[in-house]
């Protein structure tokens, strides 16, 4: 009897713990009341609507989008040639290169943000926006390299040789034959990088200036001062955005093959 109940009971409790709090947040965002509470008082869209009217959220959403998209693109521009070099050539200093590009995943983000603040923003006068951009690019680089490398590893190197022998230039062969075949990997890397950057907090902690602040940092600041359901509403919206993107990616790209 106990054995028969073990599986469903365990799974139910686990899901309650993992997903339950998130469902509460979703429910709370439709509250009609003034304060954050569960069960929610009444039902309304007022907090969902309010999120869109808060100027600082709009601004920081823009910053986060810019960082997530720009940073991921930059990481791919740096990461694709590096992955290509590591998978196709017998590279001198291969281990050093590998170590350098994978390091940002090992070093805690808060330290990176602090280091950039202390040695670039304060003394050299690097703008906070640029520092954020650089930090997010560095943070995404290891993911980009990992995912792109994995799809390059699944692609035979000799198809490029075949293209060259058929008259294509080296660069042409890369664009005609390699790129179309690792497109799925690159898109997956983009999505992974986007989600990682968008949800990232520690890297951006020390890097904020007037009007320049990422959305999660803005949310942290807001929730310290205001105890209304707008953070819940915003959290739900963002969560559904992330989940939607990942689901679409899985559906159309087989995202999990690459990650």
């Amino acid at each position: 009897m106990i054995r028969r109940l073990f599986t469903p009971l365990t799974l139910f409790l686990m899901m309650l713990f993992l997903i339950g709090p998130f469902l509460i947040i979703v429910a709370a965002s439709f509250s009609a009341g003034e304060t954050l509470a569960f069960p929610p008082q009444g039902f309304s869209f007022r907090w969902i609507i309010k999120v869109f009217t808060i100027e600082s959220f709009r601004q920081s959403f823009g910053v986060s989008m810019f960082l997530a998209i720009g940073g991921t693109l930059a990481a791919l521009i740096l990461g694709i040639p590096a992955s290509y070099a590591m998978s196709r050539y017998r590279l001198p200093f291969a281990e050093t290169v590998r170590f350098l590009v994978s390091m940002p995943i090992i070093v805690p983000g808060i330290i990176v943000g602090l280091a950039l603040l202390r040695y670039f923003v304060i003394p050299v006068g690097m703008s906070v926006t640029l520092a954020l951009f650089v930090a997010h690019t560095a943070l995404i680089l290891p993911y980009a390299v990992r995912v792109v490398s994995a799809s390059l590893a699944n692609l035979r190197a000799d198809i490029e040789e075949a293209a060259v022998i058929l008259g294509s230039s080296r660069l042409g062969a890369f664009f005609r034959v390699v790129l179309p075949n690792i497109r799925g990997g690159i898109l997956s890397a983009f999505i992974l990088g986007f989600v990682t950057s968008f949800n990232q907090v520690p890297v951006s902690l020390f890097l904020s200036g007037p009007g320049v602040r990422t959305l999660p940092i803005d949310m942290l600041g807001y929730m310290e001062n205001v105890f209304d359901p707008s953070i819940a509403a915003l959290s739900s919206l963002l969560a559904f955005l992330s989940i939607g993107i990942v689901f679409a990616a899985e559906r159309f790209l087989g995202f999990s093959r690459y990650v």
Binding site: R156, D158, I159, A162, A163, V177, N181
Partner: peptide, 8 residues
């Protein structure tokens, strides 16, 4: 090529 190296 031995592997044929067709463009997938």
């Amino acid at each position: 090529f031995q592997s044929y190296a067709l463009f997938p």
